[in-house]
């Protein structure tokens, strides 16, 4: 199913956080949404899974505006892994996974054998079969993400939406998660902080800056040193990954004053607000260092 954002404007807490975003994900594509903190990635995703209604513009899945469809219908088409993970009263892992069957059921009744089989298969697929009977709240961050992905899988949707799915994950499971997602063949839209993860696993990326999509296309075309410099305020050297040949980006902090680099195009405060959070390929935190110091 195709995802279409058309001129989407999202307002949150009184101010506009997305200013007319237009972006399309073709069926079966894995799309990455990248951008600094506060650039509107999550807000744009929320307009797709019906948490924040756009002020104007449309969000369509399979050609139908998700805001004109019943919530349950949308939930059968779009499964979401949110960043929110609260449970004041603990449910067991299996209960959490079976919640993914909610859009397919109505009213009374227990879980059908098919529900349980789907849950078992999903848990096995994400490598969490042994967690089924554990309380969800007692899991580690990585285990929780596995379980939440399993829940999204039992929803049997054609579209998968992921908001920072690799946060708090070790490198091994980051790669495993992205591999699983790639193998699902679903139309996938993921907000990602890690540009290298996006470069390695996404068919297309869209870059958000201050609520506007400033570039979109295949990662190799979009994630250029200039764009990364402009949007993230860091120096980027794009290499070829020795194993896959896909873009591999090496980051270093911008020299605070350097004669051979152009003057910053936007205010300094925008630069300081967007270090990429810690992840294996991210730059070191901004720190006082000699202008010419190389980060690695």
């Amino acid at each position: 199913m195709r995802i279409d954002f058309t001129d989407v404007v999202v307002r949150r807490g009184g101010s506009r956080v997305v200013h007319g975003a237009t972006f399309r994900v073709e069926p079966g594509q894995v799309a990455g949404l990248v951008g600094p903190n506060g650039s509107g990635k999550s807000s744009l995703l929320r307009s797709l899974y019906r948490v924040t209604r756009p002020e104007s513009g449309t969000v369509a899945v399979g050609g139908q505006d998700v805001w004109t469809l019943p919530p349950r219908t949308v939930a059968r088409q779009v499964a979401v892994m949110t960043q929110e993970s609260t449970a004041d009263f603990d449910l067991d892992v299996l209960d959490i996974v079976l919640l993914g069957r909610l859009p397919h059921h109505r009213g009374f009744g227990g879980d059908s054998p098919r529900d349980l089989a789907l849950a078992d298969r999903a848990l096995a697929r994400v490598g969490a079969a042994d967690l089924a009977g554990r309380p969800f709240a007692g899991l580690s961050g990585g285990e929780k993400q596995r379980v939440l992905l399993a829940r999204a899988l039992v929803q049997e949707s054609q579209v998968l939406v992921l908001d920072e799915p690799t946060n708090h994950l070790d490198i091994s499971f980051q790669l495993e998660l992205m591999r699983i997602i790639g193998e699902l063949g679903l139309t996938t839209l993921a907000a990602l902080h890690d540009l290298n993860l996006a470069a390695a696993h996404c068919d297309v990326v869209a870059v958000l800056r201050a609520g506007r999509i400033v570039a979109q296309g295949p990662p190799a075309d979009v994630l250029t040193p200039d764009l990364i410099h402009d949007v993230f305020g860091v120096r980027a050297d794009v290499l070829a990954h020795p194993a896959s040949g896909r873009p591999l980006i090496a980051f270093s902090p911008l020299p605070s004053r350097s004669p051979d680099s152009p003057a910053p195009e936007h205010p300094v405060k925008e630069h300081t607000s967007c270090p990429v959070p810690s992840s294996p390929a991210s730059p070191p935190r901004e720190q006082p260092s000699p202008p010419s110091a190389s980060s690695r």
């Binding site: 929320r46 899974y49 019906r50 948490v51 019943p70 919530p71 349950r72 219908t73 949308v74 939930a75 059968r76 779009v78 499964a79 979401v80 949110t82 929110e84 993970s85 609260t86 449970a87 004041d88 009263f89 449910l91 959490i96 919640l99 993914g100 909610l102 859009p103 929803q155 939406v161």
Partner: peptide
């Protein structure tokens, strides 16, 4: 129980 956003994403009004 798993939060408003998750519940919304599961089709609950």
């Amino acid at each position: 129980l798993v939060g408003d956003e998750n519940a919304t994403a599961l089709g609950v009004g």
